[in-house]
């Protein structure tokens, strides 16, 4: 896999794709980011499989220190917490390749709008998250009685957009601090809470077997769409100031 497929003049989209491709080539060669994300996901899932009591009925109630919840609620919660933490592990590393040897300076001086830099990095982060989900969700479906229908896929797509949009922005911000791996969760968690609450609520309903049409029509779906739009716009606009 070559980092630069073919030389020649490129526009905004071409340069953006080139930068995203560069990140993926570097990951394929170095395997620095994705393996830790996958190992983390697998470890949490296996731990959950051995910890939870009978999960054969998603509607069964589980007693928690703060009340009771259905098995579907617990599974949805753990599923998205795993995605959240695995994602942050990856995002925290996403600007490492630019910091090393001062490549970020060279990158900031290429004639490409900052939105291109942002989108390229967001596309790479999205690829990592999708790879984790393609691994995690089937493992979850094997270990627990959950269905992965079109509704779950729709929720995953919406969560990924919001998560990557704001995660990439905060990763750029955290990359400029000394304790970036600690700073990223501190910065991103409060902002990501609405997206992941919506994701848990929607996924839990789908795991309980509620019709996709009913779930999509519920308020949480609209909230997720609204936050995606806000985060995508804020991410693209604020990136320029953050990266400089």
């Amino acid at each position: 896999m070559s980092a630069v497929p073919a030389p020649g003049a490129r526009g905004w989209a071409g340069k953006t794709l080139l930068l995203a491709r560069k990140d993926l080539v570097i990951e394929v060669r170095g395997r620095d980011t994705l393996p830790p994300m996958l190992v983390f996901s697998l470890a949490v899932t296996l731990l959950l499989a051995f910890t939870l009591p009978d999960t054969s009925r998603p509607s069964a109630r589980v007693v928690l220190p703060v009340g009771t919840a259905s098995v579907a609620d617990v599974l949805a919660g753990f599923l998205w917490v795993t995605v959240l933490f695995a994602g942050l592990v990856g995002f925290a590393r996403s600007f490492e390749v630019e910091r090393h040897e001062g490549a970020i300076d060279a990158l900031l001086l290429v004639p490409l709008d900052r939105s291109g830099l942002y989108l390229a990095k967001a596309m790479t982060n999205l690829a990592f998250i999708v790879a984790v989900e393609l691994f995690l969700f089937p493992v979850f479906a094997v270990l627990f009685p959950i269905g992965l229908g079109a509704g779950v896929v729709a929720v995953v797509v919406l969560v990924d957009v919001g998560f990557v949009a704001i995660g990439t922005l905060f990763a750029a911000l955290a990359a400029q601090t000394r304790s970036r791996e600690l700073m990223l969760p501190v910065l991103a968690f409060p902002v990501l809470v609405p997206v992941f609450i919506a994701a848990v609520e929607l996924t839990s309903d789908l795991f309980l077997g509620r019709p996709t049409g009913v779930v999509v029509g519920a308020g949480w779906f609209g909230i997720l769409v609204a936050f995606d739009l806000i985060y995508a716009v804020v991410g693209a606009l604020a990136f320029e100031y953050v990266i400089e």
């Binding site: 001062g102 490549a103 300076d105 060279a106």
Partner: peptide, 28 residues
């Protein structure tokens, strides 16, 4: 501009690095 760091990506070859920045600057 070339600062203290090389501004190159370690996992890309020297040629790929130059091709990358060349393509970003419209150089063949």
């Amino acid at each position: 501009y070339a600062g203290h760091g090389s501004g190159l990506y370690d996992r890309l070859s020297v040629r790929e690095n130059l091709e990358l920045f060349g393509a970003l600057h419209g150089v063949g």
